[in-house]
Write a protein that binds this DNA or RNA. Structure first.
Length: 496
RNA sequence: GGCGCCGUACCCAAGAGGUAAGGGAGAGGUCUGCAAAACCUUUAUGCACCGGUUCGAUUCCGGUCGGCGCCUCCA
């Protein structure tokens, strides 16, 4: 574990606010306050969603490995939101409920559970705080009241809006030029708004008669706008001003832009104030599927569960994601996933071989070697430079392929590197080693008989036994130390 | 109309102003009764194209072509 007496290592991260890789300086020495936008739980999360959650996880692991104390907060959006401020489209939670004939509350619980099941399979660490929007309506109302007190709101058509014109820095994060935006280019604009960019803070008017999630508020019975929850919950569980806010790149132009507006307006942060609500904004690029964006609306989305049904381990997907830099597009194809699976398997088998060489039966228990090993040092340095995970992987491969006269030391370095990668390499190697000693009376008897036959050079009989076992899905390998067997991995092939 | 990103071998994908990480796949080899596994070796004088800056660019600048995305919700 990291020596907490030492100051944290240097960390650099690309800041969307400023569009440059910057040296990370936390507000409080040695402590990182991190907020990540979580899932909307009206349907399964896609592998694209999880690309971003893996980014957050890697960020958190890297900061931790560098010696920072990280406090990680994530929201669960379990309240329905309309498709636009114009009260159009459909409420996603309601749509999910209608689709499945269940209540919105059931839907939220079900998909929240599914989300964490997938996240666990991907070895994504749980945030320190998971906050549900519906548990924090009071915090949102309090924040809206603060905005109201500062004169940043107005009521129109029964709904409370944020007045963008009052916030001069509006759009800075997204480099938006308000004059050039084609408002309503793709959707119609709510006529009651003063400016097209104004966004709802609290709605009391909805076209949905069966709106199940409504609460009392100073403005009437209704429900909160889309953006207020993250700001309210981040400020509640972190501090009013904190270090890093993460999300997908698609959140930049609207969600995060609006979050900055409402939070800085509420906090009274002036336009020329160097003190920001959040100092570092970190965004993950999109995952493409066969060259095109994956989205729920297009229907070309893939879930972790689907990959598992096809015989892949969630960690194969994690390896795939780690193979590309988080700020670059990444193209998901089954062929690329196959490559990731093969690569991860190769890594695990090399780690298992190191454990054998070191005489360690349970490599899962190997403590990481701190930063004693140069390879671990270099790998961590790559991670610390804007999360260059492809370089971390390359360094790991170099380490694992090098001849080592101290396999245990190498193993400790692997453990240290995997602390950042989160690929469970040591645990996986442990189960690979367990396979070495697997036994089954019937199979063992046949294997012994075959060995006898081979000794007699009765290869016809030996091959017959091998064929017989193969029919049962058992593969034999005649290693120098004797014959070992394993069940062939069942890998249903999907059309690709 | 405005804004942003990208274009590296068969595939995925790093990269830096000084001569192309890593993985997968393929090929060759070692080993083996055969096979499998494992291991070794190997695969871009080249980084979309055209100009410019430079002693030197794939890496910087400008342009062209091509792909993707945003300006509704979406990670």
């Amino acid at each position: 574990m990291t020596d907490s007496a030492k100051p944290p290592g240097r960390f650099e991260i690309f800041n969307t606010l400023g569009r440059a890789v910057q040296q990370f300086v936390p507000r409080t020495e040695g402590v990182v306050q991190l907020y990540a936008c979580g899932p909307t739980v009206y349907d399964y999360a896609t592998i694209g969603n999880f690309r971003t959650f893996i980014l957050v996880d890697v960020l958190r692991r890297t900061l931790d490995a560098l010696g920072y104390q990280v406090r990680h907060v994530m929201n669960i959006t379990d309240v329905g939101h309309l498709a636009s401020d114009a009260d159009e489209g459909e409420d996603k939670m309601l749509a999910g409920a209608r689709r499945e004939g269940r209540t919105v509350w059931d839907i939220a619980q079900f998909y929240t559970d599914r989300f964490f099941a997938d996240a666990d399979a991907l070895n994504i660490l749980r945030p320190d705080v998971v906050a549900k929007a519906t548990d924090h309506i009071d915090d949102m109302i309090a924040l809206i009241r603060r905005l109201e007190a500062h004169g940043f709101t107005y009521v129109a058509g029964g709904n409370v809006f944020f007045d963008v014109a009052r916030f001069s820095r509006y759009g800075e994060l997204a480099l938006l030029d308000r004059q050039q935006l084609q408002a309503g280019a793709r959707i119609s604009v709510d006529r009651s708004k003063r400016n097209p960019e104004d966004f709802g803070l609290w709605f009391t008017r909805s076209k949905f008669e069966d709106q199940a999630m409504i609460w009392d508020s100073p403005w009437g019975r209704g429900y909160p706008g889309w953006h207020i929850e993250c700001s309210a919950m981040a400020m509640r569980y972190l501090a009013e001003q904190f270090d890093i806010h993460c999300g997908g790149i698609d959140l930049i132009p609207v969600h995060h832009t609006n979050e900055i507006a409402q939070a800085e307006a509420a906090l009274g942060i002036e336009a020329n104030d160097p003190q920001r609500w959040v100092n570092y904004w970190c965004h993950g690029e999109f995952l493409l599927v066969n060259g095109a964006k994956m989205s729920k609306s297009k229907g070309n989305w893939v879930t972790i569960g689907q990959l598992q049904e096809d015989g892949y381990d969630a960690l194969d997907y994690r390896y795939f994601v780690l193979g590309a830099h988080y700020r670059a597009h990444q193209n998901f194809t089954m062929r690329a996933l196959d490559a990731a699976r093969a690569a991860r398997a190769g890594l695990v088998s090399r780690v298992a071989a190191l454990a054998r060489a070191a005489g360690i039966d349970a490599p899962g228990a190997v403590a990481d070697g701190g930063h004693a090993h140069p390879a671990a040092n270099e790998a961590l340095a790559h991670a610390a430079h804007d999360l260059a995970m492809p370089r971390v992987l390359a360094r790991l491969w170099q380490l694992v392929k090098s001849d080592s006269d101290d396999p245990e030391c190498t193993l400790r370095a692997v453990a240290a590197i995997d602390r950042v990668l989160g690929l469970k390499l040591l645990q996986s190697a442990a189960s690979a080693l367990a396979d070495d000693t697997r036994s089954d009376p019937d199979v063992d008897a046949l294997v012994r008989e075959r060995d006898e036959a081979r000794r007699r050079r009765d290869f016809a009989r030996a091959d017959a036994i091998r064929t017989q076992l193969a029919a049962q899905g058992i593969e034999l390998r005649d290693a120098a130390t004797g014959t070992v067997w394993q069940r062939a991995a069942a890998l249903p092939e999907r059309d690709r």
